[in-house]
């Protein structure tokens, strides 16, 4: 923890059960001022529950939740006036127009009518919603709704923002746009707690990543630290003849090589694109035919494998690929 930074979001030993199901079993996390923590985990791990508790929406059974020095339980109004919350589902009014939505939310943050209108116009411009400003939200696309939802969270320029799976269900272009906005917010000094199922998202945006599983934080660190625990990227080369595979191995002379003799595949640990080029260059003068090539990155499942020692499903191989989210880019 770097000195001089205040902790502005702090959960201490949070416990929460729904009926007899224990959802949080002692969650501890801290977010320092002006930084972003990504809470990474699969569905049902407790991500949304944690965010709902910290944003005053959900009472909890045990522990302590503080935001900007205010107790989430006892000083909910103070907390609410300085946070913005964007959930997994767009929390906007379908019957109102985009502009009316933003003005309404601005006024409910007690910005005053004139200021709420000014901010609404600004945000519609910034979020590329000017053309749709006078249309009812029910005519909006999914991506537009989410943008409006985020804009609504930002109308009072809150110093602290909770983003609960802000990109789940978005198409790649909308996701990129959302990432750009989040990066801007961070650059502007906003403190952010983001939840995600995607390692890539946490990697791209967050200062620190906390991995949550089954109601507990099971790993925490920078994205690089976590990836270090998971292992590196792997380059897979496929051959059509066993003799090609042998010749290639001789040239590569690689300790990390894992060889699959049946599929005629060699897998190598690599570090970045330059490293990939170096390996391929080494094979340049060797008369072997490479039939296929792929680069696989550590997946969320790999993270779970490394920190829990088990994967979520039955085929527990280390090379198990997540079927959603992280793909080799």
């Amino acid at each position: 923890m770097s000195p001089g930074r205040n902790v502005v979001i702090e959960a201490t030993n949070l416990h929460k059960s729904f009926k007899s199901t224990s959802v949080l079993r002692g969650v501890n996390l801290t977010v320092e001022e002006g930084t972003m923590l990504a809470l990474l985990g699969p569905n049902g791990a407790g991500k949304t529950t944690t965010v709902r508790i910290l944003s005053t929406l959900l009472p909890f059974d045990d522990g302590r939740a503080m935001v900007a020095g205010y107790d989430v339980n006892r000083q909910a109004d103070q907390v609410r006036s300085i946070i913005g919350l964007t959930g997994q589902y767009a929390s906007v009014d379908e019957l109102l127009t985009g502009y009316e939505n933003l003005v309404m939310i601005g006024r409910l943050y007690h910005l005053g009518k004139a200021q709420a209108k000014r901010r609404a116009a600004e945000l519609l411009e910034q979020f590329d919603l000017m053309d749709a400003a006078k249309r009812a939200v029910k005519t909006y696309s999914g991506g537009m709704r989410r943008r409006l939802d985020l804009a609504a969270s930002l109308i009072a320029v809150p110093p602290i923002i909770f983003l609960d799976e802000p990109t789940t269900g978005l198409d790649p272009r909308s996701r990129q746009a959302m990432w750009a906005v989040i990066a801007d917010l961070l650059a502007g000094g906003t403190t952010i707690l983001l939840t995600t199922q995607y390692l890539e998202e946490a990697d791209q945006l967050a200062d620190r990543v906390a991995v949550i599983d089954d109601g507990r934080i099971i790993a925490e660190g920078t994205a690089d630290e976590l990836k270090g625990r998971v292992g590196t990227e792997r380059l897979e080369l496929s051959f059509s003849r066993a003799s090609d595979l042998t010749s290639a191995l001789a040239v590569l002379d690689e300790e990390s090589a894992q060889v699959d003799d049946e599929r005629l595949v060699v897998s190598l640990a690599v570090e970045g694109a330059d490293d990939v080029r170096r390996r391929l260059n080494a094979l340049h003068d060797v008369p072997v035919q490479i039939t296929d090539m792929s680069l696989s990155r550590p997946t969320l499942d790999d993270v779970f494998f490394s920190v829990t020692g088990s994967v979520q499903d039955d085929n527990g191989s280390a090379q198990h690929k997540a079927d959603e989210g992280v793909t080799a880019a």
Binding site: D77, R119, A177
Partner: peptide, 18 residues
């Protein structure tokens, strides 16, 4: 779409409901 170039906002300071 940059959200950095927002103008200053005069947000009421946190306090109990009035």
């Amino acid at each position: 779409m940059s959200v950095l170039d927002q103008t200053r906002v005069d947000r009421p300071s946190p306090r109990p409901r009035r």
